[in-house]
């Protein structure tokens, strides 16, 4: 190996890039097949309203998935996002019904701030409590939910108590794109960019890939983990605002069970549960796929039970696919390694 000149590494790079893209490609293909099949059965599935509904529903999930993806990439998990969504949604809804004059941007900022504080709590507990994230966020999932319940009592904020500009935000467009969708695109795009092209993002991957090596490399592991949880919390907080605007009715049970949808979206989207690999775009696509599946099953008039079973199978399939691809990569790399 040492005698030959340094040769073209380019094919290797193309090869690795190609493999990375297969997951995203797989999701897109699955989407196309699913949509085509459903549309043949019921053409109304492709109507403007149906597409719009799908996109709006995806938006909330995708925002949360972007934050969750960062956490999962660092080899952690955030199960509290459903409860954080509820805190944020209830806070913002109460605030808007008490002060109808407040502009939308204030609602958004407050929602994000509430979520970020919750994320900070998670991050600090995980890092300094030396308790696995699964346990910490399972705990805070119940604690945050309990907080909303004790605050809200049995009350709910209804659509007629909320200012019109707040509610119409969920339906308004800008340049023909619904605000919600635009926000989701900006969040997914922004976080993707951070994870791909900025040092902090690459450090997140490094931490998830090998926590010990990250410490030895002098990476600020504590800071990065806390940032990851803050991001996930902030995303859930933002999702809470979108949730309140879209559904108009907020009570203490808002977003119950969302955490599992979010984790499912992330895993189906190709983020490895053991950290270190996967993309935020993939997670966003995962959110889209899950949303389309559930609406397609509704259109096809398939039992709710099957929907859950299908999502479950998808998760398992996704994890198996990851294993297979990993083994394949290892094989072909070993082959190329031999420098023959």
């Amino acid at each position: 190996m040492t005698t030959s000149t340094l040769g073209a590494p380019a094919p290797g790079r193309r090869f690795a890039g190609g493999l990375l893209k297969t997951r995203e490609l797989g999701i897109v293909l699955a989407l196309v097949v699913l949509i085509a099949y459903t549309a043949i059965d019921n053409p109304r599935f492709l109507s403007g309203q149906s597409i719009r509904d799908n996109l709006l529903n995806t938006a909330i999930l995708a925002v949360m998935a972007a934050g969750q993806a960062v956490v999962v990439i660092t080899r952690n998990i955030d199960l509290s996002v459903g409860s954080v969504l509820a805190i944020s949604a209830f806070t913002v809804a109460t605030m808007m019904s008490d002060n109808p004059g407040l502009p939308m941007i204030v609602a958004i900022v407050v929602g994000i701030a509430v979520g970020a504080v919750a994320g900070l709590v998670n991050g600090v507990l995980v890092r300094y409590g030396k308790v696995p994230a699964l346990v910490v966020t399972l705990g805070t999932m119940y604690i945050f939910r309990g907080l909303v319940y004790s605050w809200a009592g049995g009350q709910q904020v209804n659509a007629d108590e909320l200012p019109a500009h707040f509610l119409s935000f969920a339906n308004d467009n800008i340049l023909g794109i619904p605000w919600l969708v635009l926000i989701a695109l900006v969040v997914v795009g922004g976080v993707s960019l951070m994870m791909r092209n900025y040092r902090i993002g690459r450090e997140m991957y490094a931490i998830g890939s090998s926590p010990d090596a990250a410490e030895l490399a002098g990476i600020k592991v504590a800071r990065n983990l806390i940032v990851a949880f803050i991001l996930s919390g902030a995303a859930a907080g933002l999702a809470g605002v979108l949730f309140a605007a879209r559904f108009g009715t907020v009570d203490a049970s808002a977003g119950t069970g969302y955490e599992l949808n979010v984790v499912a979206a992330v895993v189906v989207g190709g983020v490895a549960v053991f950290g270190g690999s996967g993309t935020v775009w993939g997670a966003g696509l995962g959110a889209l796929l899950l949303t389309v599946i559930s609406s397609a099953l509704a259109v096809l008039d398939i039992n709710q039970f099957w929907q859950q079973a299908i999502v479950g199978s998808l998760i398992i399939l996704a994890i198996c696919a990851d294993r297979l691809v990993a083994v394949r990569i290892a094989r072909s790399l070993r082959k190329r390694d031999a420098h023959v």
Binding site: T2, P9, G12, R13, A16, I329, L333, D337, H339
Partner: peptide
Amino acid sequence: GVHLDPGRPARG
């Protein structure tokens, strides 16, 4: 004097 592809993952 090493012949390694910088683009490949370190795994393996």
